[in-house]
Amino acid sequence: MSIQDILLQQLANGLILGSFYALVALGYTMVYGIIKLLNFAHGDLYMIGAFIGFLFLSVLSPLIGDSWVGILCSMVLSMIAVGLLGVLIQRIAYQPMLSAPRLSILITALAVSMILSNAVMAFTDGEYLAFSTDLGYEGLEFGNVFVTYTQMVLVGAAALLMTGLYLFVHRTMYGKAMRAIAIDQDACRLMGIHVNRIIALTFFIGTSLAASAGIMAGAYYGSIHFFMGFVIGLKAFTAAVIGGIGSIPGAMLGGLLLGLLESFGTQIPFIGTEWKDVFSFGILILLLVFKPTGILGRTEIERM
């Protein structure tokens, strides 16, 4: 393979990785934008999404098979289930803490994250589960670069979800309410917006997007594990910061950029795959030093 082919292949890999990052980063950015909470449990909800999707798929596969239809159905079901779980978590753990000091709510979020991942660990004995699907390995060849249909569909599905979200946030009343709450919660209450209901809706959408990424990643990589949400949670946060936290297009852009940076980064001599994580955290730290607001973020002005 020539250099050009390697680069093209990495472009394809980077786009897929980036779609996953972007989907998870969206949830981070939406929740952060609306209640200024860094939801540590977000990566674990991605993991839960994969497991619940796996569960649905095992139930459904005798009926509709474990190919595209089966995966799509279990993905939708899993997104709804995990979205409701996200709302439940918000109601139980975060709602009472909103007026508490920032440190307390961060620790609460951390506790929720630990509960989710360790509960799944207890159920699965910490084993990897094989996420067996029937997606096949056919694909198209572009020059020397081979892209499977699965990869194309994954990127397409991610793009569809993100477009849908963008339209929802910018074209509907609910989206408008979300954006308004992010700016001034008290004023929204005065204007007759059901703030708690919109916050719950935000959690629902954010977590179900993470769940969709979880089940897609499970189907793509073929195995799921209770710890799979930890690193992607960190990466997605990095992606959200790259794009500018609080900005929805920023999260998409940041996710894709990070995915591309990572897959090209592993091709640089001396940065093998084992240094991949160090590479992206290094990017995060450099970014925080030089441009903490990210690419599309706005400078935050604190009012007294």
């Binding site: 920032r102 440190l103 961060l106 960190l234 990095t238 910061v241 160090v278 955290f281 290094g282 730290i285």
Partner: peptide, 18 residues
Amino acid sequence: SDYLAIVTLGFGEIVRII
């Protein structure tokens, strides 16, 4: 302060990976 939380989390992983 939220940034510190996540950056320290990343730093902990970096040190372990190194």
